[in-house]
Design a protein around this nucleic acid. Structure first.
Lengths: 142, 142
DNA sequence: CCTAGTCGCAACAGCTTCTGTTACAACCAC
DNA sequence: GTGGTTGTAACAGAAGCTGTTGCGACTAGG
């Protein structure tokens, strides 16, 4: 159960909010989102809470409360969603510093950092090119 | 301690093997590699064992045993190394199947699969463009 | 043949992360 | 007020990664 499904959960919730808004259904509760994702309402609140801190969704408290998009779905990229819910880079360097008396140990970290940076930028470019509106369009094309 | 340093460990070991070969030092033991990575010999053997199954390194048993590259470092890309030691995709879909009675639940998985596939391909292109020889050159440029 | 040095592998502990769950305080429309 | 909802803390269970120990298998050299 290690894999990284946070972006999947968040994108699912946002697409659902976008569809509800388009249908004029107003806000959705975390229970309603959880029913579509087949997960737990607290888990959904955790994810939507991170999206709220990033300014992507809005929440209303109290009775008749619930969640809605803070912006048009065309203006929310998967890159923003990813950054909001999962800041981890795809690759990590050594956990403990390598042996600096070895020439490889001295130079390996900057060398790999360069490669890893390029990989991450490539990833971010692809995520930036897709919006929640794109996802919702694909979702409904069945 | 969750992050993914397997590619880092493997690339470090391979660069070290490439440098030893260039210096005419013959094979390296897992203890010697572990001393440079500052890790445990068994951990290194685990990593090099996966590289051996992928055909990237060779091992000699018995006394005077050790590891060496199976190919020229110019012919080993980081993509092959990555595939050998870490087959996990960067993103996962839902752990449990979403609610198929919801239009979003029905269409979300194929929609995200497409995006995730493009992200992974972009990542793989960057990794394929770098060889162990490139890494070693960068390492020694300090 | 025997020995010493090395790999292969299984088993385990400690740590971290993720998901899911329960419980309860805070909040607000009515 | 009341009822429905969010915010958050606390916890359990599962999984993965690193590090460690132990032992069998293998082989160069004497």
């Amino acid at each position: 159960m290690a894999a990284n499904s946070r972006l999947t959960i968040a994108a699912h919730a946002l697409a659902w909010l976008a569809l509800a808004h388009r249908r004029g259904e107003g806000v959705l509760t975390s229970e309603q989102v959880a029913a579509s994702v087949k997960s737990n309402a607290v888990v959904i609140r955790r994810s939507l809470g991170e999206l709220r801190r990033a300014g992507l969704v809005e929440v209303r408290h109290g009775a008749g409360a619930g969640w809605s998009l803070a912006r048009a779905p065309e203006g929310i990229s998967l890159l923003e969603v990813h950054d909001a819910v999962d800041g981890r880079p795809p690759f990590a360097l050594h956990h403990s510093e390598p042996n600096l008396e070895c020439p490889v140990g001295r130079g390996i970290r900057p060398a790999l950092s360069g490669v890893y940076g390029r990989v991450e930028q490539a990833m971010r470019r692809e995520l930036a090119a897709v919006t929640i509106a794109d996802v919702l369009r694909d979702v409904l094309r069945e």
